[in-house]
Amino acid sequence: MEKQNHDKLKKDFRSFYKVLVIVCASIGVFVVALVYLIKNPDISIFKGSEPDSEIVTVPVEEDDFDKIENGIHVRTGFVEGPGMMEIVQNCTNCHSAKLVIQNRMNKERWKATIKWMQETQNLWDLGENEDIIIDYLVTNYPPQKKGRRTVLTDIDWYELKD
């Protein structure tokens, strides 16, 4: 019985010691960071919160924001076409354009996916844009029947010599 109490006490002490080490290490990191910030005020996390500080914004040129090169919307990677801006405005507010591009579905599956997003993910009513969006997706990103990886094409094969 005494041995069990002694083992339990050792186990409790080890647990307490681990917690103590973690707390001390955290406090040490905090103190070092605080001292560093005090000695380097230009790096302060509070910089910019003073009422007289100047907020610097980087202007986004209108041309770059919706720039299209070689039929591709540069910012999102969407194929240029009717309905592309509706996709940009409604879909990329919540998730990456890549998520949209990789999900190739037919019209019925897109409708079901949009309904699911409205019921479970707080997607707003798309109104007239819903048909425009679905038509764009079905036209530019139709379902593809392919295996895990597409077949290699345009390859210059060579023979290995012994």
Rank of each mutant, 00 (worst) to 15 (best):
C24G: 11
C24R: 13
C24H: 12
A25I: 05
S26Q: 05
S26N: 04
I27C: 11
I27A: 09
G28S: 12
V29M: 11
F30R: 06
F30A: 10
V31L: 11
V32S: 13
V32H: 03
L34F: 15
V35M: 06
V35Q: 09
V35N: 10
Y36R: 15
L37P: 14
I38G: 14
I38F: 15
K39A: 15
P41F: 04
P41L: 08
P41S: 12
I43R: 13
I43V: 09
S44A: 13
I45K: 13
I45P: 14
I45L: 14
I45F: 14
F46V: 13
F46Y: 08
K47E: 05
K47R: 15
G48T: 02
G48I: 06
E50I: 09
E50G: 05
E50Y: 08
P51Q: 14
P51E: 11
D52C: 06
D52P: 03
E54A: 06
I55E: 13
I55M: 07
I55A: 03
V56A: 06
T57H: 00
T57K: 00
V58S: 07
V58E: 08
P59N: 08
P59T: 11
P59W: 04
V60G: 10
V60A: 05
E61H: 04
F65L: 00
F65M: 04
F65K: 10
F65I: 01
D66Q: 07
K67S: 08
K67C: 07
K67Y: 02
K67W: 09
K67H: 00
K67N: 07
I68P: 04
I68E: 11
I68C: 01
I68F: 04
E69T: 12
N70Q: 11
N70C: 03
G71R: 02
G71W: 08
G71M: 12
G71Q: 03
I72G: 09
H73D: 15
H73Y: 13
H73T: 07
V74R: 06
R75S: 13
R75K: 14
R75A: 08
T76D: 11
G77L: 02
F78Y: 09
E80W: 00
E80G: 00
E80H: 04
G81R: 02
G81Q: 06
P82C: 06
P82N: 10
G83A: 03
G83I: 07
G83F: 01
M84V: 01
M84R: 00
M85G: 05
M85N: 12
M85F: 01
I87F: 01
I87N: 03
N90I: 00
N90Q: 09
N90E: 10
N90A: 01
C91A: 04
T92K: 03
T92Q: 00
T92I: 02
T92S: 05
N93Q: 01
C94V: 02
C94W: 02
C94K: 02
A97E: 13
A97G: 12
A97M: 11
A97W: 03
A97K: 05
K98D: 13
L99W: 12
L99A: 09
L99Q: 14
V100F: 01
V100G: 00
I101Y: 07
I101E: 09
Q102E: 15
Q102N: 14
